[in-house]
Design a binder for these strands. Structure first.
Lengths: 213, 213
DNA sequence: AAGCGGCCTGGACAGACTGTCCGGCCCGGA
DNA sequence: TCCGGGCCGGACAGTCTGTCCAGGCCGCTT
C-alpha cells in the first residue's frame, strides 16, 4: 500500500456504489467501507452508530481469505446496543489483481420491516397460533448454527477463535438458554473445540461479568 | 327481487356497509350477507366462489344466539376448495328491536398477505433467525400453562385428573420437549400433583406407546 | 536461557439429577 | 374379604454438572 493514506483510492473507487446502495435502501440502511488490512473504517454513509473513518472495524481478520471462498457473506444478523436488529451483508471488494482491497458492509435496520411483517402476519393469521414447541427440536443443530454464525461473522475458523471470541459465543448461547438443556455442555464444548473445563470457566466468567453483585 | 323476496329491507339497510367493506379491502375480500333464519345467502359482493343470493349459507346454527354472547366472531380461518386460505369475520346484525336480522361475513383471502409477509420476513430475517431463545425463559410457567390448559379443557381440577388424563398431559409436555430441560421432571410432577415415580412411569408408558417398535 | 504469568487441558471428585425398582398402602370390584 | 391396579415414598446406581488441581504450552520479560 501507499504512503500514509492508502484509503483514498479505494474510497474514490467504491463510493459511488456505496452511495447508490445507501440511496436505494433509504434511511434505514447504513453502508460501511472497511479496510480489511488495518481493520478500520474507510468511509461510512448514513451511519447508525457513532463510527467514523479511522475507527476500528471490529471485523476480524478477513485477509486470510482463500480465493475460492465466497466473497459475499450473509445476510446475517447483528444487534445494536440499543436493541435494533440489523440484517447485514458483507462483500469482499477486490482490486484489478484480484487482491482483497476493502470490505463493504450494508446494515439494514430490520425493525421497521419486522413491524410491517408482524402487522401483516397478525392481519393474515388471526388467532390460530401453533402449539409452538418449548424449544427447538434439534438444539445441537442450533448450537452449531450459533457458533457457526459467529465464526462466519468474525471470519475466524473455530479452532482459531480467541478467548474473548469464545466468551462472546458462550454469552450468546447462555442468553439463548442453551445451558438449561440437558447434555448441552459437552456438545457446546465440542462445537467450540475446547474442553469442558474451559467451557465452564468461560461460562462462569460470563455470568460473573453480567451480574457482579 | 321485491315481492317474493323478504330480504329486500335488510339488503337495502346493510348493503352500504357491505360495499364499503368490499371496497376498502380490495379485490381479495368477499363480503356476504346471510339470512340467519333461513340460512341462505341474501347478497354477495365480490364473490370468491360461485355462490349467489338464495344459495344455502352453510353457516351452521347461529340462531341459538343468546343476547349476552358476543356478536362478532373471529377472525377465524377457512380453507377454500382450491386451497386458498381465508381469514374470516362474522358479525350478527340486529334490527331496531335488537333481534338478529342478518349475518355479515367478510372473507379475506390471506394468501397474498401471507406471501407478502413471507417476502418481508425473508427480506428482513434472511438466514440467521432471531437469537430467539432456544426455549422459553420461564418454562415452569409454560409447564403450568400446558397443565392448566388441559384442566380447563377437561373441566377437572388437577387433583382429580384420571390416569389417562395425566398421560395425555405428559404426552403434550413430552412433545413440547419439556423433558429435555434440566430439572423439569420434579417441576412437572409437582404441577401434575403426582409423584416423581409416577411421572416417570407415565412418561415411559407414553414413549412406549408412541414407538412400540 | 531461564523465569513468569496466563491460559488450556485431562483427570479426579463431590454433589445433584435421573431413571428404575421395590415394598407398602389405598381403593374399587368380584 | 380378597385381589389387582395404581400410587406413593424411599432407595439406589448411574449419569451429568460444576469445580478444582497439577501439569503443559506459549509468549513475554529479564
Amino acid at each position: 500500500m501507499r504512503a500514509s493514506e492508502p484509503a483514498d483510492d479505494r474510497v474514490r473507487t467504491w463510493s459511488p456504489v456505496c452511495r447508490a446502495v445507501a440511496a436505494l435502501l433509504g434511511p434505514y440502511a447504513e453502508v460501511v467501507l472497511h479496510d480489511a488490512a488495518t481493520d478500520r473504517v474507510l468511509a461510512i454513509w448514513n451511519p447508525m452508530t457513532a463510527r467514523a473513518p479511522g475507527d476500528p472495524s471490529l471485523l476480524g481478520e478477513l485477509d486470510d481469505l482463500d480465493p475460492a471462498a465466497e466473497d459475499v457473506f450473509g445476510p446475517y444478523e447483528k444487534v445494536l446496543a440499543d436493541g435494533r436488529r440489523l440484517s447485514s451483508v458483507s462483500a469482499v471488494l477486490r482490486d484489478a489483481e484480484g487482491e482483497p482491497s476493502a470490505v463493504l458492509c450494508v446494515n439494514l435496520d430490520r425493525t421497521p420491516l419486522d413491524q410491517a411483517a408482524a402487522v401483516l402476519a397478525g392481519f393474515a393469521a388471526p388467532r390460530t397460533r401453533r402449539p409452538e414447541p418449548l424449544f427447538e427440536r434439534d438444539w445441537p443443530e442450533r448450537v452449531h448454527r450459533i457458533v457457526g454464525g459467529f465464526v462466519h461473522e468474525s471470519g475466524r475458523p473455530v479452532e482459531r477463535l480467541t478467548r474473548e471470541d469464545r466468551l462472546t459465543v458462550v454469552a450468546r448461547l447462555d442468553d439463548a438458554g442453551v445451558f438449561a438443556l440437558r447434555r448441552s455442555a459437552p456438545e457446546v464444548a465440542r462445537a467450540l473445540q475446547t474442553s469442558r473445563s474451559t467451557l465452564y470457566a468461560l461460562l462462569a466468567e460470563h455470568r460473573a461479568r453480567r451480574s457482579p453483585r
